[in-house]
Design a protein around this nucleic acid. Structure first.
Length: 641
DNA sequence: CTAGGGTTAG
């Protein structure tokens, strides 16, 4: 009764009953100690009872030490442990302490207790095995494992899981087959699920199928957990037929089975099959809905996302985040921000990913004020030390032109990863600090960070923005030869941009012709922009034709060509381009830009002279253009209107 | 009444 009351949140009733008891045994006292130490702030009342009780046994000590360990009071736990008479010092007391230390990563203290134990049991040994694995000391774990005389299911699975988490299949599966030869230990389905998980994650098809074949003989192939993990594994292998047949053969399915299969189809881009299952599912939960929303947003179908989200009965933080980040990846930043502020008005609390997505949206819009508000939310919610948020903040402040703030945040990151470096390198590059960007790249290399494709986009654009042509060419070569990263379309577009902006247009064309794949519109776009700046009608035509082939509705080729013909006085050609544009039915919305100065948004449309300070702005612009001419960044007087 | 591992889907 005491325990029943305590476990149902009625500690007071338990205490009343305890006080009324005509006589109490050690077990009654122990039950109360456990009840108090497990309830918030009850540790000292628990200890008071422990001191007061007339007689104690080993369970009393273990319970009390557990209480101290679980409330982080290791000093008190250790003191009590040392004061416990040896004949009462059950292995459980030591095991509690050992596991407490292991969970905190305090391996030395755990080992000390372990070494001092006079009678170690299988729990003590298994705890050391697991604790070493969890603290990235798998090989030490193996030493403990080999030293144990008596091994049970926990010992084996701790060791096997340690290997599987690291993808050490030879060691893990080797032990697994050794375990099968032991008569005294059972193979538990749940251990096999972790093997399937690892096979899926490390893309080990052969091993996954082998283990699957093996367990189907053991009689628990119809276990729900096991079936679910098989569905997930085969989905990762892109074997949806097998995943489906596992699903169909399962005698008992739960909502996770349905969700796993839906998610599998979505990962393999079969939205129709996914939606069919979603509709057919006997029950749906927040995960089912969110899975579908994520699937649609990855395919750019944000309308469908909104529809599903609206119909969804209960929305949690992850669901909101799926909606918001879906908008962000599709460039719908206003919608993302709007949803974020809607979310704040509900009781659902944003998680780090939500705030990071909202910050990305602000970065996309370059709305400094709004993003700063979200930064304030980050601080308010104590998420400043979240790495993904810090990285997004670096990007955000950079995009808003606030390199100093970006750099300040970058430097405050305790454990930066390559993404942090990528964000800062790109941030420097975007703001014209090419030298700083390249220096930071070299720093990341000397510190042993592995560069990614994104790293080189930053590096190449840094070279572009300061005209470092040779360095850019060099990095482009190194990328492949030294870092083993294949240049993609974006890297090539960067190179064309680099050569084009430096006036080396013929080199740019040579580069395009030497590309190992068909140039995309980004590559041609870079050439078109350079041709416009340098007034190379021939290359502008080449680029324009190719863009039109790839993106028939893109207005840029028509606009640039007609402007250039117009300047050159070639009225006929200009007219021809304009007519072609009309025939295609292409409408170009006027270019628009804006900047917030002292809380006021200043908007500029192309050709628009209505700004209050138009004269002054134009004057400064002319000064800048003169300087550009002096530096030979422009070859002639022609400028796009 | 106390102590160890494993839990699939967003």
């Amino acid at each position: 009764m005491l325990t029943a009351y305590a476990q149902n949140g009625q500690l007071k009733r338990a205490r009343e009953l305890f006080d009324e008891m005509p006589e109490r045994t050690i077990v009654s006292w122990n039950a109360m100690i456990t009840a108090y130490t497990r309830s918030k702030g009850g540790i000292f009342e628990g200890f008071r009872l422990f001191v007061k009780m007339p007689e104690r046994n080993e369970v009393s000590c273990a319970a009390m030490i557990t209480g101290f360990v679980n409330s982080g009071r290791f000093d008190e736990a250790e003191k009590l442990y040392n004061e416990t008479p040896l004949e009462l010092r059950d292995p459980s007391c030591s095991n509690v302490l050992i596991n407490g230390y292991l969970k905190m990563g305090r391996l030395d203290e755990a080992t000390q207790i372990f070494d001092r134990m006079t009678k170690k049991d299988v729990v003590s040994w298994s705890s050391m095995v697991d604790g070493c694995c969890k603290n990235d000391r798998v090989d030490e774990a193996r030493e403990f494992f080999d030293a144990i005389r008596e091994r049970n299911e926990v010992t084996w699975s701790s060791m096997i899981n340690g290997y599987m988490k690291l993808g050490r299949f030879r060691d893990g599966l080797g032990l697994f087959s050794e375990m099968r030869r032991e008569d005294a230990v059972r193979i538990e389905p749940i251990l096999v699920t972790t093997i399937f998980e690892a096979c899926g994650r490390f893309d080990r098809y052969t091993e996954g199928c082998q283990v699957h074949g093996l367990v189907s003989h053991l009689g628990f192939e119809f276990d729900v957990f096991l079936g679910n993990s098989l569905i997930t594994m085969y989905s990762r292998f892109r074997c949806m037929d097998v995943a489906r047949s596992v699903f169909d053969m399962m005698l008992e399915k739960d909502i996770v089975s349905w969700n796993s299969l839906i998610s599998g189809y979505i990962q393999n881009k079969d939205l129709e099959e996914a939606y069919g299952l979603f509709e057919k599912a006997p029950e749906k939960d927040v995960v089912s809905w969110t899975t579908m929303i994520t699937g649609y947003s990855e395919e750019g179908l944000t309308e469908k996302c909104i529809g599903l989200f609206t119909m969804m009965p209960e929305k949690d933080a992850i669901a909101w985040t799926a909606l918001i980040s879906g908008f962000v990846i599709n460039g719908q930043y206003e919608e993302a921000i709007c949803s974020f502020f809607q979310m704040l008005q509900t009781a659902v609390r944003p998680n780090p990913l939500t705030l990071s997505s909202a910050l990305s949206a602000s970065a996309g819009l370059a709305t400094l004020n709004q993003g700063t508000q979200i930064h304030a939310q980050v601080i308010k919610r104590n998420m400043e030390s979240d790495l993904s948020i810090q990285n997004t903040l670096v990007s955000f402040y950079s995009k808003c032109g606030n390199v100093d703030d970006a750099y300040r945040i970058f430097n405050s990151i305790m454990a930066p990863n390559i993404v942090s470096f990528n964000s800062m390198i790109s941030g420097f590059a975007q703001n014209g600090f090419g030298k700083e960007a390249l220096k930071l790249f070299e720093k990341s290399q000397s510190r042993g960070y592995e560069p990614t494709e994104i790293t080189f986009l930053g590096v190449l654009s840094a070279c572009t923005h300061v005209g470092l042509v040779e360095e850019g060419r060099n990095y482009f070569r190194l990328m492949k030869s030294l870092y083993k990263i294949e240049p993609g379309p974006d890297h090539c577009a960067c190179m064309v941009d680099l050569l084009g902006r430096s006036g080396l247009l013929d080199d740019a064309v040579t580069f395009i012709n030497s590309m190992p794949f068909v140039p995309d519109s980004g590559v041609w776009g870079a050439l078109l922009a350079a041709s416009r700046t340098r007034f190379r009608v021939d290359l502008a035509m080449l680029a324009a034709e190719n863009i039109s082939k790839l993106e028939p509705n893109n207005a840029a080729p028509y606009v640039v060509l007609s402007d250039m013909y117009s300047f050159a006085g070639k009225k006929k050609e200009e007219e021809r381009v304009r007519t072609a544009k009309k025939l295609q039915g292409i409408k170009k919305s006027p270019g628009c830009s804006w900047i917030t100065v002292k809380n006021k948004v200043n908007t500029f449309l192309s050709g628009d002279q209505s700004h209050a300070s138009f004269k002054g702005i134009k004057c400064v612009l002319c000064l800048i253009l003169d300087e550009m001419k002096e530096l030979h960044w422009l070859d002639h007087d022609w400028l796009p209107p």
